[in-house]
Nucleic acid binder design. Structure first.
Length: 302
DNA sequence: AAAAGGGGCAACCGCGGACAG
DNA sequence: CCTGTCCGCGGTTGCCCCTTT
């Protein structure tokens, strides 16, 4: 189908290029007063000689009041690197894990800084594999599984941001028609905590085979005793269940990771690379509520 | 001090998905 | 099912500023 002339194709009528402070004021004032229901019609209503797309971009990447500007912290940088290892160039999914940062900002930061730095370190920024590091390959299955979790989590965050404060109980339905102008959720979900902890585990494992300095130690052990705790980075301890329950300790707090206990028999050491699927039947979903992510999308040894 | 080169970042472009009629 | 429209995403461009020569 031939694409109709978009709003940005009306050459000559609409302004392009950098935004002026006056334009910013107009857009900001309009959105603060009316929200942003329809980007296409917004410019006219706001008195702007811009296309809706340009307005949307300006709002999302620059004017949004919840944006955090300035330098990326070391923590944020680490998060970007590890998420990119799982998600690739899916900047919006990565941005969902970095509150108050835009996908554009992250993309720029990656392309202009991190990518170059990784190259200098002898790490392929696409595959994230050091020139010779067999360990990373053994983590592939875990990375795939975690990738699914991250993707689902990104979607969850995205959905939650879209949700209007209505009584509609279904967070997974298409929400584009009823979410305009809503503020992003500031509630930190429990699954985000677990995710955070789990991310640190993965980073910790990577750290054993590189010189990366990990600032957040992660320890494993049982929920009944701390005797079995071992620092992440000791590859033989990763995945070893001392009792019958796997716990993650992160920033002084312990987290249950039911997914791991339920889905995998990880009683064997990580370096054996044996993850046994003990989860539900193949037609069930890995992540409850995310019907498009299913077990058979992944290639775990059974 | 001036020119050249490079880096950083905002903005644009084109495509594809989703949805309504 | 087809068409038209809107939105969001990832890739790319181009400008501005800083550093180097």
């Amino acid at each position: 189908m031939a694409r109709p002339a978009g709003c940005c194709d009306t050459v000559g009528l609409l302004k392009k290029g950098p935004w002026t402070p006056d334009e910013d004021r107009k857009l900001l004032a309009y959105i603060q007063q009316h929200g942003f229901g329809n980007w296409r019609s917004l410019p006219e209503k706001a008195g702007l000689q811009r296309c809706g797309k340009s307005c949307r971009l300006r709002w999302i990447n620059y004017l949004r009041p919840d944006l955090k500007r300035g330098k990326f912290s070391l923590q944020e940088e680490q998060t970007i690197i590890q998420l990119h290892a799982f998600l690739g160039n899916r900047w919006s999914a990565i941005a969902a894990h970095l509150p108050n940062r835009t996908d554009n900002e992250i993309k720029n930061y990656w392309n202009t800084r991190i990518k170059k730095r990784l190259n200098r370190m002898g790490i392929d920024p696409t595959t994230h594999k050091p020139k010779s590091n067999p360990l990373i390959g053994t983590l592939n299955h875990m990375a795939q599984w975690e990738s699914a979790r991250l993707e689902a989590e990104a979607r969850l965050v995205k959905e939650s941001r879209k949700m209007v404060s209505s009584s509609n109980p279904s967070p997974h339905q298409k929400s584009s028609s009823n979410n305009k102008g809503s503020e992003p959720s500031t509630n930190k979900s429990e699954c985000l905590d677990v995710l955070k902890a789990w991310q640190s585990v993965v980073i910790g494992m990577f750290a054993t085979s590189s010189t990366t300095n990990i600032s957040n130690p992660v320890v494993f052990g049982s929920n009944q005793s701390s005797s079995g705790l071992a620092e992440a980075g000791s590859i033989t301890s990763v995945g070893r269940i001392v009792e019958d329950e796997l716990m993650l300790e992160y920033d002084g707090s312990k987290y249950h990771v039911p997914e791991l206990n339920e889905r995998f028999d990880i009683s064997t050491p990580l370096h054996d690379s044996m993850y046994h699927w003990t989860g539900p039947a193949m037609d069930r979903y890995i992540v409850e509520g995310f019907s498009d992510i299913s077990v058979h999308d992944f290639d775990y040894p059974i």
